[in-house]
């Protein structure tokens, strides 16, 4: 059995929405180089819709695929939908991830939330704090 599903390999080999948005409306970065995963999401938002999204990722195959899939899932969608994106949705859209790689889909969800929060903060838009729980800690970051 292959390590990853065909979907994961497709998004890893041909990642969608790689790059940077200059003058993005919101930017979110999560992860830690020490742990081996960093995801950075750039959002362009017009009329409460994600009009464009780009990502940069330092990480393994599933980290790159999770970033790519997450951007596909929110691109062109209303902001309210992007906020509802879960790591489960990313994992399902990729036809599953190995158990020890599920944290990659969690990072993708967190990166998008971090970018949304940045958008709200920058534009002085009020939001419900409970939508943005603190980033989870991973034990190797404490080494």
């Amino acid at each position: 059995m292959a390590l990853y599903s065909e979907k994961v390999m497709d998004h890893f080999r041909n990642p969608r929405n790689v790059g940077v948005i200059e003058n993005a409306d919101g930017v979110g970065e999560v992860g830690n180089a020490k742990c081996g995963d960093i995801m950075k999401i750039y959002l362009k938002i017009d009329n409460d819709t994600i009009s464009d999204v780009k990502f940069e990722t330092f990480g393994c195959g599933s980290a790159i695929a999770s970033s790519s899939m997450a951007t596909e899932l929110i691109k062109g969608k209303p902001v309210a939908d992007a906020l509802k994106l879960t790591n489960q949705a990313v994992t399902e859209a990729l036809d599953g991830l190995p158990a020890h790689k599920l944290h990659c889909s969690v990072l993708a969800e967190e990166a998008i939330k971090a970018a949304m929060k940045d958008y709200y903060d920058r534009h002085g838009i009020a939001y419900d704090e409970s939508l943005f729980p603190a980033e989870h800690d991973c034990e190797s970051c404490e080494v």
């Binding site: 890893f12 081996g36 330092f58 393994c60 790689k101």
Partner: peptide, 24 residues
Amino acid sequence: GIEGESLLLLLDDKGICASSGSAC
């Protein structure tokens, strides 16, 4: 600036079998 597992997978796509000390 890069992580070893993605490096290995892309090398494998090019037919090169290698290994890495990456945690992943």
